[in-house]
């Protein structure tokens, strides 16, 4: 989902020649995937979570993404208490490290952490990860087209491949025909393909540097009846990022 939220918020304008062709589910998801996987990006975003005692807590962070979302670095700016705290996700969030400026230590999280909630939000680390997960982890079937969020959409059903370790048994994605933006994604429980777990709704599409970008994403967790709103405050694409930035050593800087 990282690819949707950060680099994934990018959508390319589709060549007019592509319209009118009857695309298969695989072709559509491939286009979605290709568009998401912008080589590099930078974003400044705001996320609000609800704490266990019911209080709202807002975080502002900067993030950098490289290699089509495979590498991600998130660094907290606000509130002051967590300023400098950072998360490094490599290999599509299979490897996660955290840096704590207070102790100046870096810790690696277990690989299974990618299935868990990220920072008390309704996004998991897996949701924030990038790469070709839609292609590699799922098989795609095209369903009957539908209108969603006032857009004419392709409706796709992605079913988890037997060897996949995704924490979702299937996904239903509504892709806007006009620009191949996955405007809504429904996530289904790992063990129960009928149990609707979460829904991501993207909105506030703006063209930035010629690229239509969803500036707002809301993840609604149906199970907990909670939702996390992520707002992009600033975004840049195809920025120059050094590979060393995405290393454990650089995390401390």
């Amino acid at each position: 989902m990282k690819k949707i939220m950060i680099s994934g918020l990018i959508v390319l304008l589709i060549a007019p020649g592509l319209f009118g062709q009857e695309l298969t589910g695989e072709e559509i998801i491939q286009k979605v995937n290709d568009q998401f996987n912008v080589d590099t990006s930078y974003a400044k975003s705001k996320m609000t979570i609800t704490t266990s005692s019911g209080q709202k807590r807002t975080f502002i962070s900067e993030s950098w993404s490289k290699d089509k979302g495979e590498k991600n670095l998130v660094r907290y700016l606000e509130p002051a208490r967590v300023k400098g705290q950072a998360v490094l996700m490599l290999n599509n969030a299979d490897d996660i490290w955290m840096y704590f400026p207070r102790t100046q230590r870096v810790r690696k999280l277990a690989s299974h952490a990618k299935k868990q909630k990220m920072q008390g939000s309704d996004f998991s680390y897996e949701d924030m990860g990038g790469g070709d997960a839609f292609i590699e982890e799922f098989t795609t079937k095209r369903l009957e087209d539908e209108k969603m969020e006032r857009h004419d959409c392709y409706k796709l059903e992605l079913t988890r491949k037997p060897d996949s370790d995704s924490s979702y048994s299937r996904l239903i994605i509504w892709v806007v025909k006009e620009n191949f933006v996955p405007i809504v994604i429904d996530y289904y429980d790992e063990d129960d393909p009928d149990y609707h777990l979460k829904r991501l709704v993207q909105s506030n599409l703006r063209v930035i540097d010629g690229i239509p970008t969803a500036m707002k994403a809301v993840m609604h967790n149906k199970n907990d009846n909670t939702q996390t709103e992520m707002e992009i405050l600033e975004v840049k694409f195809n920025v120059t990022l050094d590979d060393t930035m995405f290393t454990e050593r650089e995390l401390k800087k």
Binding site: I49, T50, T51, R81, R105
Partner: peptide, 13 residues
């Protein structure tokens, strides 16, 4: 301290 920072961003009051 690290557990505390994790709990803070995780909303575990």
């Amino acid at each position: 301290m690290e557990m505390q920072d994790m709990a803070f961003i995780g909303g575990q009051d």
